[in-house]
Write a protein that binds this DNA or RNA. Structure first.
Length: 569
RNA sequence: CGGGGCGUAGCGCAGCCUGGUAGCGCAUCUGGUUUGGGACCAGAGGGUCAGGUGUUCGAAUCACCUCGCCCCGACCA
């Protein structure tokens, strides 16, 4: 490609509305342009990178035997009603009516559509297992799109769906996909980490997310310093160090206007962990919809709200209003687990707690000497607490918990029969009986990967593409405008093109500095500098974007470049 | 959804407080000089000042409304 005709409009200044480095560089280097909130044009440069990523994913998916297909973006409401997600998915699902007033939506994901297809074509267990995937645009009407390609509303995703005759087969494919994802992200040159994940609105029984480690990541990951354990904080578990408290008789204590955990601890002269705080929530969705529930934690722990939501099978929980508190016999600031007129869940760390301080549900009073086993025999224990830095690892004895920021670029789910059941994906098993298929799904955020790679691969000059992803492998920078250097450049350009190299020839009538800056900004891995000076000395310079340079005779440029490229691959 | 900020040429910004015919840098076009790290000189093109309503002799500027964009938060008695 000759640069003078190529649509790659670079910007000298950072656009004012870009915050993270990948967003700034994608705009400045002329890879993308914003059309509207969370929606972007991919310019030729951006598309080239997108295609490279797609192809790596495609190669790795194909080698596992998965089959590529393409599903529609416009989907009928009926399918979503059948799975129950028409109501559940909320406003991220962009809904509209066609000219016949038929309700439709833009696909944010494709479980419904793929199940609809498979149920019509699947007859026998002999067809299973089967893994179908596509690489396609999705639309999710995000509350807050941000950071360019990192969280867009329209984005490119690889989504795969596997169907199985039984759970064992699903587990096998889950493992295959897990390993395939590791291969893909490794090939993309990323520092990443697979982590245990919440199954979220997709549902299912088991899930891992793949995170690219980066400061700008929107997710927080907890990981063990010693073993392989890593999990999204939404799901992470850990051992907490608990001082054993001495049992004591239950006793009312006046605590006038002392409400906050910190203040109560200080007032009574005890550690915060000796307090048991009771948080009251209003439940939305699920079997406790509209009810009030209480969650108890140690005073120094924080609730991980997602865990409470999962424990209740709810859609979300909201802090209860004062009137809700009164309705269950609680008083703001003095809430405790005793005589509460609602369901109570206790964090696991409280399973044998004694000698605790709790609210008494009476104004200006707390109780000391509370024993969970003695005073709350009906207690139900679940994991509710957010893990903290330096908590002990639950999976090994030597490690402790650290935090890292991550960009979620992939997720694998063992869905089970969550969708196949309501959508009637049936087949005839080996015994001739009708059975419900078991399902897994596996996503990769293809366009988000562009941003994730840049977050990890950049310097003060711009992007540094790994060779496998670069929009062009080589940029020929022609200095000056003498006939000799133009001719020499063209010879090299043709030579490389003939050898199948992706090469951008910067033959613009610009000064050298401009060309260097642009090539560096765009992150092209190798630059061949052709100028009169080098030609006179018969020493053409080959530079690496973020590395060494060498000089080779004009006659050897193409040969040397090819050697460098094949060695780098 | 709540809070904060911002909409003036393709990009980055000034002008607004104190109303009086819209400016700077970069980019673009023409001519010339220059050519191994974002050149220089001369000239030119490009704006319903986000949109609407109002106040006023007169509005980018003041008031109200709408739209768009960015950031932060959406949970701890």
């Amino acid at each position: 490609m000759r640069y003078s005709k190529f649509l790659a409009p670079t910007l000298r200044d950072d656009p004012a509305d870009a915050e993270v480095i990948s967003h700034k560089l994608l705009l400045r280097a002329g890879f993308i342009r914003r059309v509207t909130s969370g929606v972007y044009d991919y310019l030729p440069m951006g598309l080239r990178v997108l295609r490279k990523i797609e192809n790596i994913i495609r190669e790795e998916m194909n080698r596992t035997g998965a089959q590529e297909l393409l599903l529609p973006m416009v989907q009928p409401a009926e399918l979503w009603q059948q799975s129950g997600r028409w109501d559940k998915y909320g406003s991220e699902l962009l809904r509209f009516k066609d000219r016949h007033a038929h309700e439709s939506c833009l696909g944010p994901t494709h479980e419904e559509v793929i199940c609809d297809l498979v149920k019509r074509e699947l007859r026998s267990y002999k067809q299973l297992p089967m893994n179908l995937y596509q690489i396609q645009s999705k639309f999710r009407d995000e509350v807050r799109p941000r950071f360019g390609l990192m969280r867009g509303r329209e984005f490119v995703m690889k989504d795969a769906y596997s169907f199985h005759a039984d759970e064992d087969s699903l587990q096998e494919e889950y493992q295959t996909m897990f390993k395939t994802y590791q291969r893909i992200f490794t090939r993309l040159g990323l520092k990443f980490r697979p982590v245990e994940a919440d199954t979220g609105s997709i549902g299912g029984s088991q899930s891992h997310e793949f995170h690219v480690l980066a400061e700008s990541g929107e997710d927080l990951i907890a990981y063990c310093t010693h073993c392989d354990y890593a999990a999204n904080v939404e799901k992470a578990v850990a051992k907490r160090n608990i001082t054993a408290f001495v049992d004591a008789p239950l006793q009312h204590i006046d605590t006038p206007n002392v409400t906050a955990v910190e203040d109560v601890a200080k007032f009574l002269g005890v550690a915060k962990e000796q307090l048991m705080k009771t948080l009251v929530y209003q439940v939305v969705g699920g079997q406790y919809d509209g009810q009030v529930v209480a969650a108890c934690l140690r005073g120094d722990d924080e609730l991980q709200a997602i865990k409470l939501v999962r424990a209740l099978g709810a859609d979300e929980v909201m802090l209860a209003a004062d009137t809700d508190l009164e309705a269950v016999g609680a008083i703001k600031g003095f809430v405790g687990p005793q005589n509460l007129g609602c369901k109570i869940l206790l964090d696991e760390s409280l399973d044998d707690a004694m000698g605790m301080v709790v609210g008494s549900n009476m104004l200006n009073q707390h109780d000391t000497g509370f024993s969970v086993l003695r005073d709350l025999p009906e207690a139900v224990f679940v994991d509710l607490r957010a893990v903290r830095l330096n908590d002990g690892c639950k999976h090994c004895d030597d490690g402790h918990i650290e935090h890292a920021r991550g960009i979620e670029v992939g997720q694998v789910f063992a869905l089970g029969q969550q969708y196949t059941k309501p959508l009637d994906v049936l087949f005839q098993d080996a015994n001739g009986k009708r059975a419900i298929a078991t399902m897994g799904c596996y996503g990769i955020g293809v366009s988000r990967l562009i941003a994730a790679v840049i977050e990890q691969c950049n310097d003060e000059l711009g992007i540094i593409w790994p060779l496998a992803l670069a929009p062009f492998q080589v940029s020929i920078i022609t200095m000056g405008k003498s006939e000799t250097s133009l001719k020499a450049s063209e010879t090299i350009y043709q030579g490389l093109l003939d050898a199948g190299v992706e090469v951008l020839w910067d033959e613009r009538k610009e000064r050298p500095g401009v060309k260097f800056k642009d090539a560096e900004l765009m992150g092209i891995p190798y630059h061949i500098v052709v100028g009169d000076r080098g030609l006179d000395a018969d020493a053409i310079e080959i530079r690496q974007r973020a590395g060494n340079k060498q000089e080779v005779p004009m006659a050897d440029v193409v040969k040397s470049m090819l050697a460098i490229l094949s060695q780098a691959n």
